[in-house]
């Protein structure tokens, strides 16, 4: 008899089972199926990127995991418990950052700690330490007292990231967070994001991430697995393992495997992309 240990597969952090979402237009009553039969298990500490053509329902899936929208059918579970409402354990980073314009950088980062469940019962000193830590981590030292309108796009994005992390969520839901940035800033922040996520550190310390993007190279660079979606209705057309070792640096982009994976994803969405602009 072999004594080989069979590694039990860890329980998924997130389990999306047969999710669908139907929108009903308020006046006409016209129904649109935005997402159909979406299935996905996400392991703890896994970095998942969802790519797909515009309007494929990527953001809808994210919003349902966040609890901001209800699925029409199917179930979403986190740690085995059904999700029905938003909660601080699932932090969201919005495409437009959604920073509070009347709050300074510091107060934006500490907003959830001050008003939300994440900071309940936390002593003021501890809260301050935490804010300092994340302000420093995302490289905002010295800009703490500025208001969002005084910051560049890249800086705002950092504030949003620090705010997301300061609440200590288990799952990070990121909706095209780098979408509005110029190409150079994007590349820099992709590397930064992996550093902050803890790529170089212990695997168990990493957060579970669902990251939505329309950038194929961005998805390959960041993800452990890439979920490719097709549209009308939005459904999973493929899930690809990105077998490029971590930590990943800029050189990864020159790796032949990087090009292969990018090409494969592109081939999956190419037809739809062309059809969309035809």
């Amino acid at each position: 008899m072999s004594v080989q240990m069979i590694q039990p597969k860890p329980a998924p952090k997130l389990r999306l089972k047969g999710i669908s979402k139907e929108f009903i237009a308020p006046r006409t009553g016209q129904r649109t199926l935005a997402v159909a039969d979406f299935n996905l298990d996400v392991q703890p500490g896994e970095f998942i990127c969802i790519v797909g053509p515009s309007g494929c329902g990527k953001s809808t899936v994210l919003n349902m995991i966040a609890g901001l929208e209800k699925s029409t059918s199917g179930s979403i579970e986190m740690d085995g418990k059904a999700i029905s409402a938003p909660g601080a354990e699932r932090g969201v980073m919005f495409q437009d950052y959604a920073l509070f314009p009347w709050k300074s950088v510091r107060d934006n980062v500490g907003f959830g700690l001050r008003h939300g469940t994440a900071g309940a019962g936390m002593a003021k000193a501890e809260r301050e330490d935490r804010i300092n830590h994340f302000v420093q981590l995302v490289g905002l030292k010295g800009a703490e007292s500025k208001y969002p309108h005084q910051l560049s796009g890249g800086m705002r994005q950092r504030v949003a990231l620090a705010r997301l992390l300061a609440n200590g969520p288990d799952v990070l839901l990121m909706d095209e967070p780098l979408g509005a940035l110029d190409a150079q800033t994007r590349l820099v922040l992709q590397v930064e994001l992996l550093r902050i996520w803890g790529e170089t550190g212990n695997k168990d310390d990493r957060k579970t991430v669902i990251f939505i993007t329309h950038g194929i190279d961005e998805a390959v660079f960041l993800a452990d697995r890439v979920v490719v979606m097709s549209s009308h209705p939005g459904r999973v057309s493929a899930v690809l393992d990105v077998d490029i070792p971590r930590p990943r640096t800029e050189e990864v982009r020159l790796d032949p495997r990087f090009a292969e994976l990018s090409e494969e994803i592109w081939s999956l969405i190419r037809d739809e992309a062309y059809r969309a602009i035809a």
Binding site: L68, P86, G87, A88, F111, H115, T117, A118
Partner: peptide
């Protein structure tokens, strides 16, 4: 009031009443 700000507050586990006080009123 920017809906997105209210949604952001919801995802931080902030209660409805607190959202009115901390988000809607200042906005």
């Amino acid at each position: 009031v920017d809906r997105q700000l209210i949604r952001a507050a919801q995802t931080m586990g902030i209660s409805r009443l607190r959202i009115v006080i901390a988000v809607v009123v200042p906005a």
